[in-house]
């Protein structure tokens, strides 16, 4: 449906290098990357606001790289909403329709329809400055949807919203996508990506380093960068010793872990998600091949879960529920056991 082919762009010190990916009809495609990695520039190239140095944008089989912005049928919604401050909500919404010379009567019907769908009927007469951030984002979305874009580009549409508005807008975006709208959403927030995406592309240093389903990207990060970026805290550099006959061993700072890997011996990183580590007060006999004694050095509480850091010679973070925290009476300085299966960690070679 939309194909980005070998896009290259250099602006001052920053560069997009040979970016390629394809988005299929109705897909929710998330570009995940740190701020400043060039995500917005890429969106502006797709929408036609910027011209790439090299490469092509193919929309429905047509090369639109040189096509005028107005004729591309690609809509973009910015993080700061970009509502026109001198126009009322209604005028903002009718702006794209007026550009298309839609009749007054039809503009009125379409705006009413949109306001009802997106849910901001009472706001029509208001000025953008009087809207809450969530309301403004709804209006900005509706304004772009009024153009009936073939592909909707979203530039960090949720980041600047408060928690309540965040979940509302997320639900709205999902609903818009389910109605068949193809969407490309850029964000630095991996939870947002996991919650919305059908596929994720990870951007790193001006390049796309991994494309896959949220599960693939999250569970099987291809590089240390991806692992670090999506918030996996247990990343250790070390050496893999794999004889090929039995379980491989990963050695780091004098600690040995059993790890299931078909990679050859060598240096690399072991990543382990906090959710895969269990904590107990005694040394339990389980099927887990990795069991270590350590001392709790840090506890970071979240709304539902706690991240417990245990020093077993090296520090490991386990994510456990607050309920378990209470039952096990975990506190700083307490001696505990941690366990994880050899199938849990992932080895990423260098």
């Amino acid at each position: 449906m939309l194909e980005v082919r070998n896009i290259t762009k250099t602006i001052d010190t920053f560069a997009l290098k040979n970016i390629s990916f394809e988005v299929t009809q109705g897909e929710y495609f998330v570009l995940l990357g740190k701020s400043g990695v060039g995500k917005t520039v890429l969106l502006e190239i797709i929408s036609g606001l910027l011209e790439p140095d090299n490469g092509h944008i193919i929309l429905d089989g047509h090369d639109v790289t040189k096509e005028k912005i107005q004729k591309r049928h690609i809509g973009i919604v910015y993080q700061d909403k970009a509502l026109f401050p001198h126009l009322s909500v209604q005028e903002n919404l009718s702006y794209p329709l007026r550009c298309r010379r839609v009749s007054r009567k039809e503009i009125y019907t379409r705006i009413e329809q949109l306001a009802e769908d997106i849910g901001f009927m009472p706001l029509l007469k208001r000025k953008p400055e009087t809207l809450s951030s969530g309301e403004a984002q709804r209006v900005a979305l509706a304004r772009t949807l009024a153009t009936e874009p073939k592909c909707l580009l979203l530039d960090e549409p949720i980041s600047s919203l408060d928690i309540q508005a965040k979940s509302e807008i997320r639900a709205l975006l999902r609903r818009i996508n389910r109605s068949g709208q193809t969407m490309i959403h850029v964000t630095h927030d991996y939870e947002e990506a996991i919650s919305l995406a059908t596929r994720i592309a990870v951007m790193e240093d001006g390049k796309i380093s991994q494309v896959g389903s949220p599960y693939e990207v999250f569970q099987h990060p291809k590089s240390e960068f991806v692992a670090k970026f999506i918030g996996i805290k247990n990343i250790f550099k070390g050496e893999l010793r794999n004889s090929g006959n039995e379980l491989a061993e990963f050695v780091t700072e004098g600690k040995r872990f059993f790890i299931l890997s078909d990679k050859e011996s060598g240096t690399g990183s072991m990543v382990l998600r906090g959710e895969d580590i269990t904590i107990s007060n005694t040394n339990l006999q389980t099927s887990a091949r990795n069991t270590f004694k350590g001392i709790i050095t840090d506890i970071e509480m979240d709304r539902l879960s706690s991240e417990v850091t245990v020093d077993i010679g090296i520090e490991m973070s386990a994510l456990i529920t607050r309920d378990s925290m209470k039952k096990l009476c975990l506190r700083l300085g307490k001696e505990v056991w941690i366990n994880f299966k050899a199938t849990a960690p992932r080895y990423i070679e260098e």
């Binding site: 502006e44 107005q70 809509g75 700061d80 772009t144």
Partner: peptide, 18 residues
Amino acid sequence: VPERLEKAALTLGATPIR
């Protein structure tokens, strides 16, 4: 005038003159 508003208007289908 924030350039972003002009960009948004362009993507909404307005010609540069408009």
